[in-house]
């Protein structure tokens, strides 16, 4: 069922999807680190079921953008809502809201002192109050789904980077989040492991999961993304569907950036 939605003014970049129910709504989001203005009045709507790829030069604020969505970074101005609810300040209520927003980090960040299965069941048992037996069963299913079922009882350090990142995705999925944020999930991986992680992410995208993915993997963006957002200097400079963005970028900054990543 499609609902007609009103989205906040799209700012300079205008385009917002109208066919999807908005799930993450950022409007006029400002963020400073000291004197550095990292996010400059960012307006962004992510629709339910949408796969959004965020691309842009180093230091443009992509990670910060991601991290404000589950309030790992606080914001100085504007507002962010998840499924209609504004992110509260630090506390129990924030923890509850965060549990609906999954996050996959560049450096995996699996809990080093817990087994793979425990990594996946910690959230459901401690945050959601799921019974251990149920969480274990569901955890094993998810590990199977991302292709590391037979590693369930090992510790993270015993796994390859690609396997660890797939466990991290299973850990996020175990919370049955409304949206999952990926911050350069394959940047820390050896080349031969990148595709195994991207395959899992592509499957997820196909299954209808809402995803915000910071990545420079063009293949993934072309195959799985509904929309690409180009970010530079804390602003959303351009957004388009992947094909249009990669073949005919409009802004000079995006053209310049793409010419650089194409040449190596």
């Amino acid at each position: 069922m499609l609902r007609r939605v009103t989205t906040p003014e799209g700012g300079a970049t205008g385009r917002t999807p109208t066919s999807r129910e908005p799930l993450v709504v950022m409007s006029g989001v400002d963020k400073h680190f000291g004197d550095l203005h990292v996010l400059k009045g960012v307006d962004l709507v992510v629709g339910r079921g949408e796969v959004l790829v965020v691309i842009g030069p180093s230091g443009s604020g992509k990670s910060t953008l991601c991290r404000t969505i589950n309030r790992l970074e606080s914001i100085d101005g504007g507002s962010i809502t998840i499924d209609g609810a504004e992110l509260p300040a630090e506390g129990k209520e924030l923890a509850r809201l965060r549990s609906d927003v999954g996050m996959v980090f560049q450096s995996f960040n699996l809990f080093a002192h817990k087994t793979v299965l425990e990594n996946v069941t910690l959230g459901p048992t401690k945050v959601r109050g799921v019974k251990k037996a149920d969480a274990d069963r569901r955890g094993r299913e998810l590990l199977e789904r991302v292709g590391v079922g037979h590693q369930a009882d090992k510790y993270p350090a015993q796994l390859s980077g690609g396997q660890q990142q797939r466990v991290a995705i299973a850990r996020a999925l175990a919370m049955e989040p409304k949206v999952i944020l990926f911050d350069e999930p394959t940047s820390a991986l050896d080349p031969e492991m990148i595709s195994e992680v991207l395959d899992v992410m592509t499957d997820l995208a196909t299954s209808g999961m809402t995803m915000v993915v910071v990545t420079h993997e063009m293949g993934f963006a072309r195959k799985a993304a509904d929309r690409v957002v180009f970010m530079a200097d804390g602003e959303l400079v351009e957004q388009a569907d992947p094909e249009t963005f990669f073949t005919a970028p409009r802004s000079p900054r995006a053209q310049d950036f793409l010419s650089k990543i194409f040449t190596h």
Binding site: N70, L72, D100, F111, A112, K126
Partner: peptide
């Protein structure tokens, strides 16, 4: 990153300290 991953899961500060 350990505490950050725990926060992102929705663990409270106390759970984060005591479990992670």
């Amino acid at each position: 990153g350990q505490a950050e991953a725990a926060r992102a899961l929705g663990l409270t500060f106390r759970q984060n300290l005591s479990l992670v």
